[in-house]
């Protein structure tokens, strides 16, 4: 292949020394003179690659090392061991050409100048990234249209709502047309409508510009709808790399069947099809192993009080919870990494 990989990560590790002390004044006093340091393995021996134009979701519980990994890839943090390459560049060298080809959006931090309208931040970024007048006008026009920035661009940032600010953050981060987007919780705190807007925008940007997207999000819907591929890390280690449906199947081999009743339902009869997750007078949800699905659905449709039936995957949140709770005992044996498989 002529063009290099968008992201190439080999045996990447990052450890921190943090000083820890028990709560209380006495302990605080002791820690002034003698500090106990603890080594935190934020990321351990992480390897994966991403092709140009891919959209990859980064999943993991809080503290899994997602943000640390993104920051190493963006050149903000220096890896303790291993190496990362972004389109052939070594991120920690922070070469101008590299920095001009990437962007990092953090849902919890902002780069917009607080006291001034976002338009001023755009002007500043334009100068820093050396964007030509023509390109700036074109990109800004495009972003204004996609994100509906027209009116909000000229209001001081401090007067914008969280959603409006996020839209402007995205615009500020994309004015230089980066080819690689690191998005760290870009939809955090946004309402559902705004989440959809942001999500749709990311997809369109990816399709229009062929840009690579690496996304972390706590909203599983973001990942499910945006990312054909997911990388799961837990306690700094790679747990899974592949498509989402296969992950769901491997963790949670059951399907969910939602029923709507007309008339009084017979719980016994429903229970014969599978495990009842939820049951009330009008609805029920039952869990059925995939292999038994055909037979169970036949049985359920045969029940006179079943008015409607839908088959779904279990909610992603639940699947993830299961995946990560399974990793806790495994960690004691220090073999959490063995469950990783490259799909």
């Amino acid at each position: 292949m002529s063009s290099p990989l968008a992201v190439e990560v080999r045996a990447l590790s990052k450890t921190y020394e943090v000083h820890e002390r028990p709560p209380g004044l006495a302990a605080a006093l002791r820690s002034v003179f003698r500090r106990k340091y603890k080594t935190i393995h934020a990321v351990s021996d992480l390897s994966f690659t991403v092709e140009p134009g891919e959209r990859v979701g980064f999943l993991g519980p809080n503290g899994a090392g997602k943000t640390t990994t993104l920051k190493m890839l963006a050149g903000l943090l220096h890896p303790t061991a291993g190496e990362a390459r972004i389109a052939g560049y070594v991120p920690r060298r922070r070469e101008a050409a590299f920095l001009k080809s990437i962007t990092l959006v953090m849902g919890q931090k902002q780069q917009l100048l607080w006291d001034l309208p976002p338009a001023d931040t755009f002007t500043m970024n334009r100068a820093i990234y050396e964007v030509s007048d023509a390109d700036f006008a074109e990109t800004l026009g495009e972003l204004t249209e996609l994100l509906d920035l027209g009116a909000i661009m000229k209001k001081p940032t401090r007067q914008l709502s969280l959603g409006e600010r996020m839209k402007c953050e995205l615009a500020a981060a994309l004015l230089h047309r980066p080819q690689l987007l690191f998005l760290d919780e870009p939809t955090i705190g946004l309402d559902v409508a705004m989440q959809l807007t942001v999500r749709e925008f990311i997809r369109q940007y990816n399709e229009r510009r062929g840009a690579t997207v690496l996304l972390t999000s706590h909203y599983m819907d973001d990942v499910a709808s945006l990312c054909p591929r997911v990388v799961v890390i837990d306690q700094g280690r790679l747990r899974y790399d592949g498509d989402l449906p296969s992950l769901v199947r491997s963790i949670q081999p059951d399907k969910r069947v939602a029923l709507r009743f007309s008339g009084s339902a017979d719980r016994e009869a429903v229970a014969r099809a599978g495990t009842i997750v939820d049951f009330d007078a009008a609805h029920a949800v039952i869990q059925i192993p995939r292999v038994d699905l055909r037979e169970a659905v036949g049985h359920l449709l045969g029940l006179s009080f079943v008015a409607d039936l839908t088959i779904e995957d279990p909610p992603l949140e639940e699947v993830m919870r299961e995946l990560f709770s399974a990793s806790k005992p495994a960690e004691a044996d220090a073999d959490a990494g063995t469950q990783a498989d490259s799909a």
């Binding site: 050149g75 903000l76 920095l99 990092l104 953090m106 931090k109 820093i128």
Partner: peptide
Amino acid sequence: RQGTLDFVLLKPADAQFL
């Protein structure tokens, strides 16, 4: 302290100058 220096370090210009 707040970690927003990230944005400065991401810019393709001299960080000390910025």
